[in-house]
Write a protein that binds this DNA or RNA. Structure first.
Lengths: 222, 222
DNA sequence: ACCTGAACACCGTTCAAGT
DNA sequence: ACCTGAACACCGTTCAAGT
């Protein structure tokens, strides 16, 4: 997108970190996490695989840069809503991003110590502060929320791996529900009862319900 | 441990799924997730790499079996405590297990649709039921708790990767805190303020604080 | 039925050599 | 300064061949 065109650059489509990340995201989005290879990426960029290493340290750094780009974009929209609504909106933006790009969820879950995660932590923390949570519990509260988001991110990535684009989602969930129902009633009574809810539940709503639970706990402690 | 000794077996140390899993766990615990290779595993078992495939479908299945073993063992201890204490105890047992075997955290986060996860879900759900949570919210509540645990599991695995055994934990955390302090005060005021708490926080305590937050939210909704 | 081990089809990463 | 592409050091997995 914003290609830092340097002076003295020869071709319009010269290699640059931005362009590499851009193409990586395109591959990731279109074909999934497992399709991103330095060889395929290099082919798409019409270079050698080694060339990429001049611009990016390694594959983890590449994924981190790609994740950072998307998270930045997702968090860019301002929110001057009251804190309670603002956290929900923030969480929801992260959820929707991960839902649209499941590999982001995978990378966040795998590498939580990355700038994008810090940005989420910052956004969450600010609202928690605005919520009037006492200083002594702000750290725990923000961490809890972020860890919850992280867990959902991983779940989402796993789901995407399990049901690649083109999969009949309803059928896949029905298959899981059927398996749950086959479990030993003595050992898994609760799971069996929940099988019925698997099919008609809404991931997004469920995600938000978890956020609300944590926020409610925070307000109860107030 | 419990080697299903089949009739007609030749050597005492014949290959079996149990023995493979046992040795895999030993490698994982001693040298970390990246050290487990079908080649090293086969070498340790004094066989060829291909032999393992007769007993285990693939590497994921191996990790799943190993994780299942440890989770089973960790959840085996009964808890006839009141539900509130029982969930905390259950969560804590999972945390301590993951803390001792970080690869379990990694695998749970990577593959949430596994029996071990279902067992955790079952345990959590039962107590949530006992807590008197209305049926309509039991699914969301149990999922939230499990997703939170999942997120912490991933965090823990990432931490272990970042600070392998022998690392000075205090120094590593101090380094992170120093980096946080170097962030732009305009963009990361909250993170900067939290840097001070990074060093003296207790992971286990923080984990439990998150569980309590969710439980408090559940009781507030009651 | 169970095991062997070479071979296959990949990976990420490095690096001498080029321009 | 930046790119090329062969080569290195691995992987998980398969499978013909053995016992």
């Amino acid at each position: 997108m914003t290609m830092k065109a340097r002076r003295g650059e020869r071709r319009t489509d010269a290699l640059s970190k931005d362009r590499i990340v851009e193409v990586a995201i395109a591959i990731l989005d279109a074909e999934g996490e497992s399709a991103l290879t330095f060889r395929t990426l290099a082919a798409r960029l019409a270079t050698g695989a080694g060339a990429i290493y001049w611009h990016v340290a390694d594959k983890t750094a590449l994924l981190t840069a790609a994740t950072g780009d998307l998270i930045d974009r997702a968090l860019a929209e301002g929110d001057d809503a009251p804190p309670r609504q603002a956290v929900r909106a923030l969480a929801l933006r992260v959820f929707d991003l991960i839902d649209a790009h499941s590999w982001v969820g995978g990378h966040l879950a795998r590498e939580p110590w990355q700038p994008a995660m810090l940005r989420i932590f910052e956004g969450v923390g600010r609202q928690i502060q605005a919520l009037g949570v006492p200083e002594s519990t702000q750290f725990n509260a923000a961490t809890a929320l972020v860890n919850y988001i992280l867990g959902c991110a991983g779940q989402n990535a796993a789901n995407a791996r399990l049901m690649p684009p083109g999969t009949d989602r309803d059928a896949a969930l029905a298959a899981f529900a059927a398996e749950w129902t086959k479990l030993d009633p003595a050992e898994h009574p609760f799971v069996r009862k929940m099988a019925a809810r698997l099919g008609d539940h809404d991931d997004r709503e469920q995600f938000l319900a978890g956020v609300d639970l944590i926020l409610a706990g925070l307000e109860a402690g107030r």
